[in-house]
Amino acid sequence: MVLSLARVALRATARPALAAAVRPAAFTAARYSSHQAEESYEQFNERYQAFFSQVGDLFELQRGLNNCFAYDLVPSTDVVEAALRASRKVNDYATAVRILEGVKEKVENKGQYEAYLTELKPVIEELGIQTKEQLYNL
């Protein structure tokens, strides 16, 4: 009786080890990382566009902006447009100006900034936003 119990216990401990040993090759190649899979640029933009279009107050907007502009990439024009519209929604002109300033800070050169501005021209004119350079004649 005792012997059979011991055998059962042994078998129970032996089994997981065995199962681990015959793990399919495909799984062993997976990267074991504390992080989730890397997000693509498109997914990032979609996520923040969705976030900015549902923003309800200034704090949320600025929190989202801080997160969004903390990445090592420049958010797409769709995201920036959503953010500008969000700042209109929460009635904060200063944040709208700050968003454009943030874009200027993130892009690599002046040409890219100009490209963003021309691409965003419709929404900028619709909302009546001026860039910091226009405000202070820089």
Binding site: D92, R98, L135
Partner: peptide
Amino acid sequence: QLSTDEKKAAYYVSF
């Protein structure tokens, strides 16, 4: 319809 002064003031006070 905001004047430049108002825009500047808003920006300055916030940022």
